[in-house]
Amino acid sequence: MYVRSKRYPLGKTFRPGTLRALFVLLYVLYPAGCILQIVPAPDNLERPLAVVGLLLVAASLLIFALLAGTSLQRQSQEQPSRLDERELAERNRATYVAYVILAGSVMLGLVYMMIAKDLEAGRGIHLWLPKTSDHWNGLFWGFVLVSLTLPGAVMAWRSRAPEGETNE
């Protein structure tokens, strides 16, 4: 997902350090917000924790909205015919790395769920497993957020600071 603006048709450019910080915040705030909303808490803390969790998720969505207008996000989501050869080459490399990370994470998640299910059935050991629709919603939208932004994040980690070419 990329938001094209009239003012910055090629997307806003930031220093790689700023972009990396935004991606880290996005990947930390969203799961933290989801966890705070689903963890069992004492009665008097349940509502405040849920509100804080919701605020963290909202903050992560704001960061996502900010990233959606950047040149990196344009590079990772734009139609190929609108990118030049360097942008396409970088995107192809980043997409490959993002695919490996995402596929590896899904695989680890599935292995964890399999083991947790077996332990619960065989030995009565209860590890956390997604059960309610809230749990699955959190996982699904987290997956959507990561899959939309991971190629951009990979490029942010690989790029060097272009002097005099940022909008900061």
Partner: peptide, 16 residues
């Protein structure tokens, strides 16, 4: 090309 690509070429970060 994108103006940024010219910067990459100038710095030798990208081979055309």
């Amino acid at each position: 090309v994108n103006p940024q690509t010219i910067g990459y070429l100038e710095r030798g970060d990208y081979a055309p």
